[in-house]
């Protein structure tokens, strides 16, 4: 009986690991979607309304509930430079985004607010283009690797159970 309980625990632990890894990939797609939407709003706030960065991030965080913008606004309100605020927001966001995703956002944050509206829009557009590519890659990874992680987790569980029995 104890052996059976142990086998079941092992199987479910391995399956859960597979599910967790798959969820991470899906979560990255969702986070990138949310960031893309938020930056599209920031583009509008800058180009049409010339809303200062602090007010713009506050409005966008309230409207979209995007986690990155919420944290970005909090850091900006604390008097940080946009680049430092982005660095802080990304580190608080956790490790859902890849280093490449973070690099695109950090590069943009170095320029954020430092030039006229036309130039800001160009820089946001360039970053949005790169983020869209990252989103496509993330979706592909979620479709292929996600299923692989799920299946591998379950197979590993079955294998360990068989070995234990």
């Amino acid at each position: 009986m104890l052996k059976l309980f142990g086998a079941l625990m092992t199987f479910f632990a391995c399956a859960a690991l597979g599910v967790w890894l798959q969820r991470r990939l899906i979560k990255r797609v969702q986070v990138l979607d949310s960031i893309l939407g938020a930056f599209a709003m920031l583009r509008t706030e800058i180009s049409f309304l010339q809303t200062p960065l602090l007010s713009a991030t506050e409005k966008i965080a309230a409207a979209t509930k995007d986690a990155l913008f919420t944290k970005l606004h909090m850091h900006l309100r604390g008097g940080k430079l946009p680049s430092d605020a982005m660095q802080g927001a990304l580190s608080e966001l956790g490790c859902v985004l890849t280093n490449t995703d973070a690099a695109v956002l950090l590069r943009l944050s170095l320029q954020l607010g430092s030039s006229d509206a036309e130039s800001q829009v160009q820089q946001i557009d360039a970053a949005l283009e790169q983020l869209r590519l990252q989103r496509i890659n993330a979706q592909e990874a979620a479709n292929t690797n996600g299923r692989l992680y799920l299946a591998s987790g379950m197979l590993l569980g079955v294998l360990l159970v068989l070995l234990m029995l």
Binding site: L54, S114, D116, S119
Partner: peptide, 13 residues
């Protein structure tokens, strides 16, 4: 200058 314009040069062009 950046502090005066709250890091939003585009808002005060």
């Amino acid at each position: 200058v950046m502090r005066i314009c709250n890091h939003s040069v585009y808002a005060v062009t």
